[in-house]
Nucleic acid binder design. Structure first.
Length: 258
DNA sequence: CCAGACGTTGTT
DNA sequence: GTCTGG
DNA sequence: CCAGACGTTGTT
DNA sequence: GTCTGG
């Protein structure tokens, strides 16, 4: 599904592309071609009234660029470590799951991405693919978020966390797996981020997109270098010929029948 | 009632 | 906090 | 998502 | 095999 992705745009650039106000205050993660759960990520949210004061000095901001930790920690969690396995939520169930329900109803967001990785099980090992737009423009992955406060007496620790949404794979993504991240076109962003409205108002967005929307996406094999968390460079996204290191691998056999 | 989980993917 | 399982 | 650990007592 | 850490 979507447990690793690339996001290389700086907050100022995201502010332009997403028509948002940057409130990261120099505290943003840098470009990263290998973002993993539990790491800081740049996120776009709407400007829910309850957030005005904290975000932008009491003024309405439209959309906001902010930093969160990937891996949703529900408000009620005693230990934020639970977030490490709450990094993805299914569109089919997100509105009902105790861990995600509140966030789906009231705190939706977008995770800007250059592309994302999927692994396909091959003979003996798994092989990664990278999916990105041919034209290089940013993807917007639908997400949900939570604001956690440490319940320990005396603690003032706060943590903003998020999770991506997944949907059944469509188009070229169906060739490499069952799931893919829920990608939203710019025309859907306002409605998705308007969390003054009920989750029912976006149920039409929480479905597999028309395959026609996926024609802009290229899916390409990449090196297994991405497996290692400490690798972060642009070469991770470069097309890679596995037969150069695994001569007997039948690449086409990894892919499903259309 | 209390205790314990709260999630996904993919594989068997 | 809320649901599920025992 | 993958990689890497997977344990305790007791001493510094 | 399964959990934790990144």
């Amino acid at each position: 599904m979507c447990g690793r992705y690339a996001s290389t745009r700086k907050p100022a650039q995201l502010a332009r592309e997403f028509d948002a106000v940057d409130v990261t205050g120099g505290d943003a993660p840098g470009p990263d071609y290998n973002i993993q759960p539990t790491h800081p990520v740049l996120v776009i949210t709407g400007d829910h009234p309850n957030e005005w004061n904290r975000s932008v000095g009491g003024h309405r901001a439209g959309r906001i660029v902010r930093v969160m930790t990937w891996g949703l920690v529900p408000r009620w969690a005693k230990d934020p470590a639970i977030g490490s396995r709450m990094f993805a939520a299914r569109v089919e169930t997100v509105a009902d799951k105790p861990a995600f329900r509140d966030a789906a109803a009231a705190r939706r967001c977008l995770l800007p991405a250059d592309g994302w990785y999927e692994w396909v099980r091959g003979p003996g090992r798994k092989y990664p693919f990278y999916s990105t737009r041919y034209d290089g423009s940013a993807l917007a992955i639908a997400g949900i978020w939570s604001s956690w406060s440490d319940p320990e007496p005396g603690s003032t620790r706060r943590l903003d966390t998020c999770a991506v949404l997944t949907t059944p794979a469509v188009g070229p993504l169906a060739a490499i797996g069952e799931r893919m991240p829920l990608l939203l076109p710019p025309s859907a962003w306002d409605r998705w981020l308007d969390t003054t409205a009920d989750v029912d108002t976006v149920s039409d967005l929480m479905v597999p997109p028309p395959a026609a929307e996926l024609t802009a996406i290229e899916v390409r094999p990449v090196s297994r270098e991405v497996n290692r968390a400490q690798h972060h460079g642009p070469r991770l996204t470069r097309r890679f010929d596995w037969t150069s290191v695994t001569p007997d691998l039948d690449t086409s056999a990894l892919l499903r029948q259309g």
